[in-house]
Design a protein around this nucleic acid. Sequence first.
DNA 1: GGGCAGGTGGGGGAAAGTGGGGAGAAGTGT
DNA 2: ACACTTCTCCCCACTTTCCCCCACCTGCCC
Lengths: 159, 159
Amino acid sequence: MARFKGQAENSVDEKGRLAIPAKMRRVLTPEADDTFTATLGFESCIALYPNDRWAQMEDEFDTLNQFDPAARRFLRDTLSMAEEAALDKQGRIVLPKNLMNEADIADTALVIGALDHIEVWDPNQYDAYMNDRDADKEEVAERVMGTMSGRLNGPGGVA
Amino acid sequence: MARFKGQAENSVDEKGRLAIPAKMRRVLTPEADDTFTATLGFESCIALYPNDRWAQMEDEFDTLNQFDPAARRFLRDTLSMAEEAALDKQGRIVLPKNLMNEADIADTALVIGALDHIEVWDPNQYDAYMNDRDADKEEVAERVMGTMSGRLNGPGGVA
DNA sequence: GGGCAGGTGGGGGAAAGTGGGGAGAAGTGT
DNA sequence: ACACTTCTCCCCACTTTCCCCCACCTGCCC
């Protein structure tokens, strides 16, 4: 399964097309078939899941009980915004318009690798998210990765 | 079995015809035979089940105990409103009038994919449903998908 | 300095969505 | 039983959107 990392600031043209950085395209597995599923991510960004990964997620969704109102709500939120987007010959995808609106993306986008998916942000939104936070990087890292101490002491590990 | 996702806002013409988005038609399995069963969904929408999926559901209904009043009520609710609807050559279905009344659908409909079925909403009703809720997306996602942590680290996973 | 790979922009053709008209079937009343 | 009405289904034609292809530009590496 693909592991995305790194970032790039690419332009979004009139037709909503966005070039996926070559370094991220390179890690796509053949099973993904050069196709992503775009949906709304958390904190106003667009999340792009390679199709092989997305298929796994749909398997999980399938196990939800649709007679539970909260589950219905979740499925509608997640699936109604989800659109398939395939790479064209130039390595671009077309961002669905409703997702661009939701994520406030106009003519420039910040593309970020996030392990199993790619996130697409409006550069300003991302700045704001990163700055308007009381939690600084080291504190968050400690809280999140604390349970793993001993197993992991790589970059970001507790100093 | 088909996995529906995405959305489209299509018009409902004088004759009650609604075009099913091509991206949803494409995922139909041959067993569905381009035919749906339309019934009343939850939260005032019309639910369209491909016929192969509907057959499974009828098998499940068959296992219910008809001596249980609640089961009888459920079956009457579900089955009395159910009508078959086949795609015409242009990829449209005719929405049954009683369902259009129940779901408050007039001349425009929001079509959303919901995994094993398609939901047809009045755009305003859907807005109201999505907004008039205390539960926001992240809270619901955490509650619904929380039990899956470990198996799935998709949306909601810490970046 | 030249070539190549990555990113950007525009134009043409096919497909999807929309609307109207006509033929056939089914239901109703005489 | 027949005729009339009504509804449904199917076909045709138009419009618009989307997708694919071609060409260009820029920066990096050799």
